[in-house]
Design a protein around this nucleic acid. Structure first.
Lengths: 127, 127
DNA sequence: TCCATAGTTCGTCATGTGGCGAAATATAGC
DNA sequence: GCTATATTTCGCCACATGACGAACTATGGA
């Protein structure tokens, strides 16, 4: 069984081949976020964001934990970090200076200041 | 002007998000190859391979030179290598043990033993 | 137990991408 | 210059992917 490495590698590269997913990964540098927080920053439907997160998860690019009704995602750490570490490091280096990424970072700061509960209510009321 | 880094990064990740293009990059570790040699190993139409190469080129993942009627592609070196070096290194590490990649390597060895002229003739006659 | 609600899954649509063969382009050799 | 030919570009088709809203699932609190 060794067609695995290629399948793994492609899962990672395909996961990284999308603007929104890269934005999510960069946002997670600031710490774990729940889905509604990511939704708030990206401005996409929750279902869309959830799908993106499952793709990132499938590629081992995020870890997650459930806390009550909230699902928190974070960059992988420890053992799970190993295989993807170099790619994430590269992305980080390349994108540090990206304007849009810096803007996202600001919005993340604002968003983590709210409790997820408030965010979710705002999102519901918005439509 | 600074939305550039993201556009660059996505060009790279999208270029890497395809099996055939990854195979090509791994093949080029053994040295420069002309299009017909790559066609021979991948078993795809020349037009398809050419398109893949232009995507890789657009992402800065290959350099090229023209020699007569033949176009040679190689992994980037020197200055052009810099921005993508870490990703290529990662890919290399992940895929060293991949069976399919090792098989490709063998076929590359066989193919570089022929002169491109012979290869091209064989490909023409094949259909 | 039942309701409210965060997140996921499903169905659908528009767009993007990879494949091919045919036509176009560029170069070597006559 | 003309012909042969390696590669690229173009037009087309089939399939993958990202977006949404609706339906579903699971969890906390009344």
């Amino acid at each position: 069984m060794n067609g695995e490495p290629m399948r793994m590698a492609l899962r990672v590269t395909k996961a990284l081949a999308d603007l929104q997913r890269v934005r999510i990964l960069m946002m997670l540098r600031q710490g774990e976020l729940c889905v509604c927080q990511i939704v708030e920053v990206l401005g996409l439907a929750a279902s869309t964001v959830s799908k993106h997160l499952s793709v990132l998860d499938g590629a081992g690019l995020v870890d997650s934990r459930k806390e009550g009704r909230w699902m928190y995602y974070r960059l992988p750490g420890g053992v799970s970090e190993r295989p993807v570490r170099p790619v994430l490091k590269w992305l980080d280096e390349v994108l540090v200076k990206d304007e849009a990424i810096q803007q996202d970072a600001k919005r993340v700061k604002a968003v983590v200041a709210c409790k997820p509960e408030r965010l979710c209510r705002r999102q519901r009321e918005r439509q």
